[in-house]
Design a protein around this nucleic acid. Structure first.
Lengths: 341, 341
DNA sequence: TACGAATATACCAGCGCTGTCAAAAAGCTC
DNA sequence: GAGCTTTTTGACAGCGCTGGTATATTCGTA
């Protein structure tokens, strides 16, 4: 089943069918309709390879991400969103996990040579990689970033992480907490700085002077949540609540509390960030910030699609976040409460 | 940069370069080496579209899965494994999430028409869909399944789920449990039947007559774990341990125990199946069965690659599983133990 | 050394589609 | 309705590669 068959069936030239297939102008509506009917009737599907070859467009959108984070539900959600968004277009997604060992710019060249994607979507940490973005500019490949920290990006979709972090800390303050610990994210990630800043914003707005002793370094991994919590809980004056910069670390905090026999939320309130599947599975359920990953991915796809048509495109989209209140946060109990098991 | 440039640089015809690119015979080793050197030197990468068009091979392997399960870490792990495995080949993966609303066989036809994948990998539940497999046979598309229950499949990679379930129940028995509850999986999934059978095997081998009151229906979702646990714990003679057919349900069990103030593992041992990321994040960590998803995906890719070369291929690969002992299981405590918080 | 068999290489058509550009049709003006 | 512009349609080449087939080279054997 080739375009020629359709052309014959509709009594037109292949070029006219091609115009219809590609939504190009200069086909009268009635003719277009007739050709579309033929396409449906013959159940014709154009050959992707031939199209790409002749049109030198691959109809591919590449998603670049970091292999170590490949298993994360964050990436998974983005993938789901991107695949969904592509389904209704003529484009298709290619996933490209980078090993961080690779030289990114060199690896990109190889990848581009292989797949010739028409556009790319970058997620952190690569969404902040200026050398990478420069190279894409040179290769004239439009791209959009998700949650980029960089001003150098062309188009970005993200949400106000700083405000979201502030919102969840304000929730803790509203519950009556005054000493709130924070376990920060991995250095270099935009998320780290924003969430830390939001934490401080909320404290200051409530008239609480941020105590630097209550902020400990983390790296977004479970173990660093555990360690961070241990350090915070061993302070002379420990916090009554801990805001971890992501859910995995918040789970680490809960583990440390569990190990020490501190009931959550009675003796310690815990909240995270990201609304990973695990946050719902924990007991108690973890209070966290939900970011609409699938929706963001969908928008990023739409952005790059627009950017393919108009390479000068340069827009920032902010999506709304949502604080998901669950059972891991409550009003502070009497100091030094301790469960006996 | 085209094949012609390489041919000129190496002083041979394009066809000879093509032979080298496709690992075809009839090129003398020295010549082959010279051409490979030229390819490297010129940094030549063949054009995928032209290759597919001329060779009528897409170099694509499709992964078919169910969209509702798209967010699951199980699929994610498989995707990671497949992508890794493809990286070292000339093949590429296309992900195809099906909406369960779609007529599967019709959707397959459309998908095949679009992408013309050279092979497919099916995961449950589609790995058990006989109509689908028949259609693939008709379309002459080789495929491999992962954890298929069906005898109709061509090649499959899986592990002995029944034995694994038995192993984890035996662990509970070894700890001293005699009344062990089970929350089964969704009807229709092979996993449901195998895990239930393994549970019964272990009990019988230990001389414990399976008590049907201790088996309740689940559907692999968190909520059904909660409900199932509630029903089991309200029995006149409740179990001292619950084996849920997957981790999400096991988390539901832990939630129900938490709600009732039953400490895990002191008052109730809980174990799951799958070793999802959440199982490690729980407090206490969840005892579960680890299946090497990435490895299985890699093997499935190798299988279909072999099947492309030899369409009669028909092999079953069993990979080893591993019981991951964590803190959610312990010797049974005194009956009706109840934590006061 | 000569001859046929086996092996290695080259030539060319064509995969299915789209871009270019020319031709035809339609619309517009007076 | 003639002559012009604008819109619509079509013919054809060629995207970069591989399959088939013809040709050249090498090897083995007498």
């Amino acid at each position: 089943m080739r375009i020629e068959d359709v052309a014959e069936h509709a009594g037109v030239s292949t070029k006219t069918v091609s115009r219809v297939l590609n939504n190009q102008p200069n086909v009268r509506p009635r003719l277009r309709a007739r050709i579309e009917a033929s396409i449906r009737e013959l159940n014709y599907v154009p050959n992707r390879s031939a199209r790409s070859l002749a049109g030198s467009r691959s109809h591919l959108i590449a998603l670049l991400y970091d292999n170590p984070t490949a298993g994360s539900s964050y990436i998974m959600e983005l993938i789901v969103g991107i695949l969904q968004a592509c389904k209704s277009t003529q484009y298709n997604a290619v996933l490209h996990p980078f090993d961080s060992s690779e030289n990114l710019v060199a690896a990109i060249d190889g990848f581009v040579a292989h797949h010739r994607p028409d556009a790319m979507i970058l997620v952190p940490p690569h969404a902040n990689d200026i050398a990478l973005m420069r190279r894409l500019d040179e290769l004239a490949i439009p791209y959009a970033t998700i949650s980029s920290r960089s001003r150098e990006t062309r188009s970005d979709v993200g949400f106000d992480e700083r405000m979201a972090a502030a919102a969840i800390v304000e929730h803790l303050i509203a519950l009556g907490h005054r000493r709130i610990g924070h376990i920060s994210g991995l250095k270099g990630h935009g998320a780290r700085a924003w969430r830390l800043a939001g934490y401080r914003d909320a404290l200051r707005r409530a008239g609480i002077e941020p105590d630097e002793a209550l902020v400990v370094e983390g790296d977004f991994m479970f173990a660093s949540g555990e360690n961070g919590a241990a350090r915070l809980l061993e302070l002379a004056e420990p916090p009554t609540a801990i805001f971890a910069a992501n859910d995995d670390m918040a789970c680490g905090v809960m583990r440390e509390a569990y190990t020490r026999g501190l009931p959550v939320p009675q003796a310690l309130s815990v909240c995270g960030f990201d609304d990973t599947p695990a946050s719902l599975l924990m007991s108690p359920g973890l209070t966290t910030v939900h970011q609409p990953c699938r929706e963001m991915a969908r928008m990023a796809v739409e952005q790059v699609l627009r950017a393919i048509g108009d390479p000068t495109l340069n827009e920032m989209i902010r999506v709304p976040f949502e604080v998901r209140l669950r059972a891991s946060t409550a009003a502070p109990g009497p100091p030094a409460a301790r469960a006996d098991e």
